[in-house]
Amino acid sequence: MIKVYNFARGARGLRIFWQCEEMGLPYEVKVVPFPFPDDYRARNPAGGVPFLEDDGGVAINESVAIMLYLAQRYGPTPLLPAGDDPAALARVLQMTVLTEATLGGSMNTLMAAHFVAPEGDKRNWSVLGLEERMAHALGYVSDTLGDQPYLAGEAFSLADIAVSTALGIWRGALNGAIPDRLVAYRERLAERPAYQRAQARAAGG
């Protein structure tokens, strides 16, 4: 049985729930408090959430790595295009990884500055630079989407799950602005039944 450890309402764990719902995979949600208790640190020495355990002794961190693992182990799935469509595969992999390598990496520092930094450091040069980086990256995502229904074209994919949840972190934690095209895109994805089921699981339903 797939077990996903996550904070209550944690958006990165929501990615995993959403993917499992889209793929029809049974999974168990384990809510983890913060600070992490000793038994969780023993189970997951790297720390952080989400963290997934699976049959066969699998234990894996990092939300994007978990997404790729699930698609590979329990696929094939339309969420990860096959190798016979290399352009779609490349786009899905690129945009999925971008959500943490570019968007998530920037947001983590911005959230630390916003919530933890001393007042004099909340608007320092690194914060201003990361805000510019976020604006550029979100513009790039919007341009990539263009007039397509999904980031890789006509088919919903891992990239859409990963990007939509990153947009949720940006807006929810930092009240960040996103292009109008991405607002409409995110609202449309939120209508998917699998997303709504995942949200209910994340909220303890």
Rank of each mutant, 00 (worst) to 15 (best):
P118V: 05
G104A: 04
A137S: 13
L128S: 11
P81G: 08
D85M: 06
M134A: 08
A112F: 07
P149L: 10
M107D: 03
D84A: 13
E154R: 07
W125Q: 14
N61R: 12
T96S: 09
L93C: 12
G56C: 12
A46V: 15
S142W: 09
L145H: 06
M67T: 06
G153Q: 08
Y74H: 12
G120A: 15
P149E: 14
P118R: 07
V141N: 02
R171H: 06
N61V: 09
A112G: 07
L128A: 15
P118W: 03
A82H: 06
Y150G: 07
P45I: 11
A82D: 13
A117Q: 01
L70W: 05
D121V: 03
L130T: 11
L151N: 04
H114R: 15
A90F: 08
L52F: 11
P86T: 10
S63P: 12
Y74R: 00
G104N: 04
N124A: 08
S142M: 11
N44R: 09
G83S: 15
V64E: 07
V97F: 10
P76N: 00
L145F: 09
D85I: 04
L89S: 01
G146T: 10
V127M: 03
S106P: 06
I66W: 02
V116C: 03
D55T: 10
N61H: 14
G120Q: 11
I161T: 04
P76Y: 00
M134L: 15
G105R: 05
V127G: 02
A112Q: 10
V116I: 14
R43V: 04
R73T: 12
E154F: 00
S106L: 12
W125H: 13
M67W: 00
K122Y: 05
N61Q: 13
I60M: 12
Q148T: 13
A82N: 08
S157H: 03
M95D: 06
A71Y: 00
L103F: 11
L98N: 05
S157I: 06
V116P: 01
V127Q: 01
G75T: 01
L89A: 10
V92D: 01
P50A: 11
G139R: 07
H114N: 14
G83M: 14
G75V: 01
L128P: 00
L93A: 12
S142Y: 10
W170V: 04
R91A: 14
Y74V: 02
T109A: 11
V49C: 14
D147G: 15
L52K: 05
G57A: 07
I161E: 00
P81S: 10
F156R: 01
H114Y: 14
R91W: 02
L70S: 02
A82E: 12
E132H: 13
H114Q: 15
G105C: 04
G83K: 11
E100I: 08
G48I: 08
G139Y: 05
P149T: 12
R73L: 04
S142T: 13
A162D: 01
E154H: 05
G120P: 06
T96G: 00
L79N: 00
G105Y: 03
M107C: 10
A173G: 04
A71F: 00
T102E: 10
L103Q: 02
G168H: 05
E132W: 07
D147M: 11
R91L: 12
L151W: 02
R43T: 09
G153N: 10
S164R: 02
A117N: 03
W125V: 14
P45E: 07
N44H: 15
S63A: 15
T144E: 13
